[in-house]
Amino acid sequence: ATNIVSKVKWYNSTKNFGFIEQDNGGKDVFVHKSAVDAAGLHSLEEGQDVIFDLEEKQGKAYAVNLRIK
């Protein structure tokens, strides 16, 4: 899926990962520091509106092509 609009559930800049809620009630989506860095960001804030693409690797959903709404 591409261009999903949602909100950051939480992000831990010390552990370099977090999760984004899915508005459709699906499972929370993992977001890694590499996606945050690629977006030119230093961190994410809880409740922040984001747009991302969903990529599945080894049966897990990852946020990629992250951008701020």
Score class of each variant (00 low, 15 high):
Gln48Phe: 06
Gln22Asn: 14
Asp37Asn: 14
Ala35Phe: 04
Lys27Thr: 09
Gly40Ile: 04
Ala61Phe: 15
Lys9Tyr: 03
Asp23Trp: 15
Asp37Gly: 08
Trp10Asp: 01
Ser13Gly: 11
Val8Ser: 00
Gln48Val: 09
Ala63Leu: 04
Ile20Met: 08
Ser6His: 05
Gly47Pro: 01
Thr14Leu: 13
Gly47Phe: 06
Ser13His: 12
Ser43Cys: 12
Asn24Pro: 10
Val36His: 01
Val50Ala: 02
Asn24Ser: 11
Gly40Glu: 06
Asp49Asn: 11
Gly59His: 06
Lys33Tyr: 07
Asn3Trp: 07
Ala1Val: 12
Tyr11Thr: 00
Ile51Gly: 04
Phe30Arg: 02
Ala35Lys: 04
Thr14Ser: 13
Asn24Phe: 11
Leu44Cys: 03
Ala35Thr: 09
Ile20His: 01
Lys27Met: 09
Val5Ile: 12
Asn3Cys: 11
Lys69Gly: 12
Asp53Ser: 05
Ser6Trp: 09
Ala61Trp: 15
Ile20Gln: 01
Asn3His: 08
Val5Met: 11
Lys15Met: 14
Ala38Gln: 10
Gln48Met: 13
Asn3Gln: 08
Phe30Ser: 01
Gly26Thr: 09
Asn12Asp: 11
Phe19Glu: 02
Leu54Cys: 08
Ile68Asn: 07
Arg67Lys: 09
Val8Cys: 04
Glu21Lys: 14
Val29Asp: 00
Gly59Met: 05
Leu44Ala: 00
Phe52Gln: 01
Ile20Ser: 01
Ala39Val: 06
Asn24Arg: 11
Lys7Thr: 08
Asn65Cys: 06
Leu44Arg: 01
Ile4Cys: 10
Gly25Glu: 09
Lys33Pro: 02
Glu55Val: 14
Thr14Lys: 14
Lys69Ser: 13
Glu46Gly: 13
Leu54Val: 13
Ala1Ile: 12
Ala1Ser: 12
Phe30Glu: 01
Gly40Tyr: 06
Val8Thr: 03
Gln22Tyr: 15
Lys69Val: 15
Lys7Met: 05
His42Val: 13
Leu44Tyr: 00
Asp23Gly: 15
Glu46Asp: 09
Ser6Ile: 04
Val50Gln: 01
Val8Arg: 00
Thr2Ile: 13
Leu66Tyr: 00
Trp10Cys: 08
Tyr62Trp: 13
Val5Glu: 11
Glu21Trp: 15
Gly59Lys: 05
Thr2Phe: 14
Gly25Ser: 09
Gln58Lys: 12
Trp10Met: 04
Gly40Gln: 07
Ala38Cys: 09
Lys60Ala: 08
Ala35Asn: 04
Gly25Met: 09
Asp49Ser: 13
Ile68Phe: 10
Trp10Ala: 02
Gly47Ile: 02
Trp10Val: 02
His32Cys: 07
Gln48Arg: 06
Leu44Pro: 01
Leu66Pro: 01
Leu44Glu: 00
Ser34His: 10
Gly25Arg: 09
Asn16Ile: 02
Leu41Cys: 08
Arg67Ala: 06
His32Thr: 05
Ala38Arg: 11
Gln48Lys: 05
